[in-house]
Amino acid sequence: MRRSGSDSSGPHIELKIQSHPANLAPTRKAIEDFGGQCGFGEEDRGQIGLCVNEALANVIRHAYGGATDRPIVIEARYGHEVLRISIRDWGSGVMPQDCSPEQHDPRVPGGLGLICMRRMMDTVSFSPQPDGMLLEMSRKRRPVAPAASARSDGA
């Protein structure tokens, strides 16, 4: 289910999905589109989409242990030039194992999703709930570089 709109605090979108991997791509693209509507550039939208993808994949694999029919609610809200994304699940509630990018061994799979989130988002926080987990991420909008075709060569 998808709801979107705008209120006094700014534009927002809410997506309610089941924990099936087939829902990853459409959810990622919906958030990327929302980022575009909020003025985020292509590269930033891509990074935000990847972080949402990784967060959802972690929920599916770890919080829900691979179950494909459990609920996930994704909400994105934009205001004061900051995109705030929350992802709520009703899974194990276990805090993810954090690993700094410097400690991460690229030859060992795992942990990369969290590294992407830490590197690409401005803030990332996990709040255990009595019945699951709330992940909140934010990313400030950065000025978009002018397209090469739009530049004046000054000649």
């Binding site: 990853l24 891509g46 795992g110 990369l112 999703g113």
Partner: peptide
């Protein structure tokens, strides 16, 4: 596009 599961 690829994600961390593809990297793995």
């Amino acid at each position: 596009y690829m994600d961390s599961s593809a990297i793995a």
